[in-house]
Design a protein around this nucleic acid. Structure first.
Length: 581
RNA sequence: GGUUCGGUAGUUCAGUUGGUUAGAAUACAUGCCUGUCACGCAUGGGGUCGCGAGUUCGAGUCUCGUCCGGACCGCCA
């Protein structure tokens, strides 16, 4: 046996014990007569002590070893004369009598510490070293615990985990598929699943009325800090349920996880309709940790000669508390912010509600002091507040004001990663009009059930139909989404028709599912949580990358292994593929 | 496909209106040091300033192109 204990467990009660320890040399402190070495493993750090007077040979031996060398030592646990209260093993040290070098290490390109001197790119290239760092390892441990607790919770409710295939049929709806050529079927391709959607619905038809799977999903779209080409979902489906049952079951899961993992008590989740989310926050995933809801001003401000407002479909503002002292420079910064192409506003109007009761605005020329006061009243602005107003096309203005609201939240530190605000956004539209393709697309996916009371509009006014679809939003992050599914072949047919599918196309792509609906499909619905996002949220981070052991970079590359890469002519030939020169 | 920021020592960064030999910290190496725990002190090595072209007497610095990386928009049912 190479080790009797880990480096995190020894304490004063082990005093006098002969132990064997293994690990990596974190750091050594050579004081001349004595040398101290921090030995590290997954569990912690234990100090090894070497004394020139006691064993000069051993001292010389340990001094010759660089950091990250893997060693095994044997020795005796002793009480330290100078204790270190900052570490769990700080009361003891090991008086080493034998060292075995298990493997030498080159000097690592960055320091293996919480505040490493390595940049992101370098850390990703040497990810196996990066993962030795405490803070990164803890993220993966957190991920593990969230996974275990999720399984415990769902298992207790009779959910069973069933694996579904990774090599499946490609469908053109939704995100781009990752495509896998089939050697045995030349010219034909599998796709990697964007989600196990069809399979979990088929499992409902099979009678597995409570299914879940913590499963990898694949989407060939551009990446973001919170988007990877392969990511993990907690994928769930239930039969014989209403939307209410699903919301109850899975908000209880979220509450359970917050309690178990973070020790935080969360009350029942608020519900907000999609329409309200857009109207008050300009986003279908509002960050409700802070207020600053939109106030519509269109009617109030029009017809006073300010053409920007007069021509706007929507004029709306937010009231920023205690910022009337903002300088010209700060306001210019905000104007630049909203004018960035990513935000897309034409300009920014401000009204300062000065503490002396006067008003100063960028539209003084068009509005009297009384009129500014009445706008301030509508916005419920107090003396000392700042009102920021955008105007223009309804959708664009909502979106831009939503971005501005988040920016102000950031500037005013209202987005504390350690406070959590959870809500359901419900009543999403079923369909979304695409101007380029001149057709409707499913906002969620084509199997989402319309609300029964809206079904009759499916043919007459499809854009108005609301869906039995819902998202769980935490701190402005969409952590999960789902819907009640269509389980009736006729309704599914009408849905495909609304999506401009011909019967042949629908049959070719989803015939297996619609066929299944004819053999006794129970009413069902489900939800899928973004597991990586949930982990990053619990870990208080914006990026999901540090919660994934081996993530891809911005351009979808694994910089460590340098995937993707070219393949040999032989491989291409076997797959009956040729590359365009 | 687009916007934007960045690329200088092993690493993280600084580098003024273009101007002598490109700096700091840290890491590394060597020496000294018996209670350190971010040990301390001293000395030393370490640079194709991403790459290419251009402007200039002169480019790390300016211009254009290109490659790489980050954030974002589009995209992500």
């Amino acid at each position: 046996m190479l080790r009797t204990h880990t480096n995190g467990e020894l304490n004063i009660t082990h005093k006098g014990t002969e132990v064997k320890l293994c690990g990596w040399i974190q750091r050594s402190r050579d004081l001349g007569g004595m040398t101290f070495v921090d030995l590290r493993d997954r569990y912690g750090i234990t100090q090894l002590t070497f004394n020139m007077e006691v064993n000069a040979n051993l001292c010389e031996q340990i001094r010759a070893l660089g950091r990250e060398t893997v060693i095994a030592v044997s020795g005796k646990v002793e009480e330290r004369s100078n204790k270190n209260a900052k570490m769990p093993t700080g009361d003891i040290e090991i008086i080493v009598d034998e060292i075995q070098v298990l493997n030498k290490a080159k000097t690592p390109p960055f320091t293996i510490e919480d505040h490493s001197d390595g940049g992101d790119e370098l850390r990703m290239k040497y990810r196996y070293l990066d993962l030795r760092r405490d803070c990164v390892r803890k993220n993966l441990e957190l991920r593990h615990r969230i996974g275990i607790e999720t399984r415990n919770y769902l298992n207790d409710l009779n959910f069973i985990e069933i694996e579904t295939p990774f090599l499946i049929k490609s469908t053109p709806e939704g995100a781009r598929d990752f495509i896998v050529p089939s050697r045995m079927n030349p010219g034909e391709f599998y796709a990697l699943p964007q989600s196990p959607q069809s399979y979990k619905q088929l499992l409902m038809v099979s009678g597995f009325d409570r299914y879940f799977q913590i499963v990898r999903c694949f989407r060939d779209e551009d990446l973001r800090a919170d988007r990877q080409p392969e990511f993990t979902q907690i994928d769930c489906e239930m039969s014989f349920v209403t939307q209410e049952d699903i919301l109850d079951t899975f908000e209880a899961l979220a509450i359970y996880l917050f309690k178990k993992i973070k020790g935080i008590t969360i009350d029942k989740l608020a519900r907000m309709t999609y329409a309200d989310a857009m109207k008050y926050y300009g986003s279908d995933k509002p960050d409700t940790r802070f207020g600053m809801r939109f106030i519509e001003l269109t009617n109030q401000v029009q017809n006073h000669g300010f053409s920007v407002f007069d021509q706007a479909e929507l004029v709306a503002g937010i009231c920023v508390e205690a910022c009337s002292e903002y300088t010209r420079k700060q306001l210019d910064e905000l104007t630049d912010f909203v004018k960035r192409p990513q935000v897309g506003a034409q300009g920014l109007v401000y009204i300062k509600c000065n503490t002396d009761g006067t008003y100063k605005s960028s539209i003084d020329k068009f509005y009297s002091s009384d009129q500014l006061q009445s706008i301030a009243l509508t916005c419920q602005a107090k003396a000392g507040d700042l009102i920021l107003i955008l105007a223009g096309n309804r959708n664009k203005t909502q979106k831009a004001l939503g971005e501005l609201r988040l920016e102000m939240g950031n500037r005013l530190n209202l987005r504390n990663p350690n406070t959590f605000s959870l809500l359901w956004v419900v009543d999403f539209p079923l369909l979304e009009w695409d101007e380029d393709c001149k057709r409707f697309f499913a906002m969620h996916h084509p199997f989402t059930a319309p609300k029964p009371e809206d079904q009759n509009m499916l043919e007459t006014d499809p854009g108005k139909v609301r869906a039995n679809a819902y998202d769980m939003v935490i701190n402005g992050v969409e952590v999960g989404g789902g819907s009640i599914r269509i389980h009736d072949r006729e309704l599914q047919k009408r849905m495909f028709k609304a999506l401009s599918f011909t019967e042949e196309e629908a049959q070719k792509q989803f015939g297996f599912l619609m066929d299944a609906f004819e053999y006794g499909a129970p009413p069902h619905g489900g939800i899928a949580f973004g597991f990586d996002r949930l982990c990053s949220l619990f870990g208080g981070a914006d990026s999901i990358r540090d919660f994934i052991a081996f993530p891809k970079n911005n351009s979808g590359r694994d910089v460590m292994s340098d995937a993707p890469s070219t393949v040999s002519e032989v491989q291409l030939k076997e797959l009956a593929l040729s590359l365009k020169k």
